[in-house]
Nucleic acid binder design. Structure first.
Lengths: 204, 204
DNA sequence: GCGCGAAAATGAACAATGTTCAAGAAGAAT
DNA sequence: ATTCTTCTTGAACATTGTTCATTTTCGCGC
């Protein structure tokens, strides 16, 4: 076997295990929450040693952050799949997509927002950017709806609107502190956006 | 010394230590976040044994929950101190009070919302009720502003509005994912509420 | 194939931390 | 003073993230 094949075989194996580890970690977080994720459980499920997890991700945070990175990406993909033809419709769909994702992946989304780094290491910039970008996705439709407003003003408005939606959803889906009952969340969110748009002088 | 004094002396001592333990735990959480709170640190700072912490609070969750209980109470007190003469003003002040509390006690408030029980024990009902009650404090002013609306409708609306404010603030104050810059948070929140009220057909 | 050196895998050992509990100390009751 | 109850203590334990010396694997030149 030549160099290229040899090299790629090793890399393939390594990459495959990496994927397996991530998938297992994600499944465990999704099933039982970030808090009950243990290195040993992941290693055992992947049929490898504890040390291998460390070789691949550096430390436990590394694994969690990788899962979180995937979570933001999946969320972003879902939000980006919202059609952009009608801006008002788009805003509704964005909120709805967020609600859908939060419903289906509650523990994964919580892991993203609630995870704190070990010690006081800084939060990775790339994940931060990805989240910020996701939260900026209401910007485009709002620019179309408010063409005369100051650009930075709309930028702030869009992030604020998304933060509000996030707050309503995350508290509404929290089993314990039900601020808004889950079964009414969908229509309530739509109403919320309509009300806010009306307050901005727009009609849905 | 008679029975009553003996009894109360013991109780006083016990109560005093309880207060000390709570105060230390609160200070540690406020300073470094819930994650870095350790039983041994609390015990050492209180100059008692680890076991005494367990005698007093049952387990570590017990101590945390007690601090969280105090946090909700302090938050509620602050929200209740908002004058109730003008309903629109009251809504603004409630948001502002929440922002103030979240700014001054960021780690304590995070501990309240992010703490997960050990294993899967249920979240204590009393704390849950207290949080729900706090989040219902926008109800009264909204009832005055919307006297013709259905009661349960306004109840939902008020919790949703508070959840939205919570989302904007908690993400805005998160050092890492700054959705809305802290220095603009105050005026932006006011604007947010005005916009929403306008959408409801009201004028600030 | 063979042997060598680099890279990776392993899991025992370690460190940090929540929890328990048997033994002792302190206090209440008589 | 004695006894019984209660509280306090901290050593020992269980769990879990982390390290690292050892072993295994693997690529590569011969």
């Amino acid at each position: 076997m030549n160099n290229v094949q040899e090299e790629s075989r090793r890399d393939r194996k390594r990459l495959q295990r990496r994927v397996v580890l991530i998938e297992i970690a994600r499944r465990l977080i999704a099933a039982n929450g970030l808090r009950s994720l243990k290195v040993r459980d992941v290693a055992e499920a992947a049929e490898c040693s504890i040390g291998s997890v460390y070789n691949e991700f550096g430390d436990f945070d590394g694994l969690i952050l990788t899962v979180n990175r995937d979570t933001v990406q999946a969320l972003t993909d879902r939000l980006n799949a919202v059609p952009a033809d009608d801006p008002i419709r788009q805003l509704h769909d964005l909120a709805d997509a967020y609600l859908g994702f939060a419903t289906e992946h509650a523990n994964l989304l919580r892991a993203l927002f609630e995870h704190r780094m070990e010690d006081d290491r800084p939060f990775p910039d790339d994940i931060l950017s990805m989240v910020m970008d996701a939260f900026a996705l209401m910007h485009a439709p709002l620019v179309r709806l408010l063409p005369d407003r100051d650009a930075s003003d709309v930028a702030l408005l869009s992030r604020m609107m998304f933060s509000a939606v996030h707050g309503i959803i995350s508290l509404g889906l929290e089993e314990r502190m039900v601020a808004v009952p889950p079964e009414q969340l969908r229509e309530r969110l739509a109403l919320f956006i309509d009300t806010h748009l009306a307050g901005l002088g727009l009609h849905g």
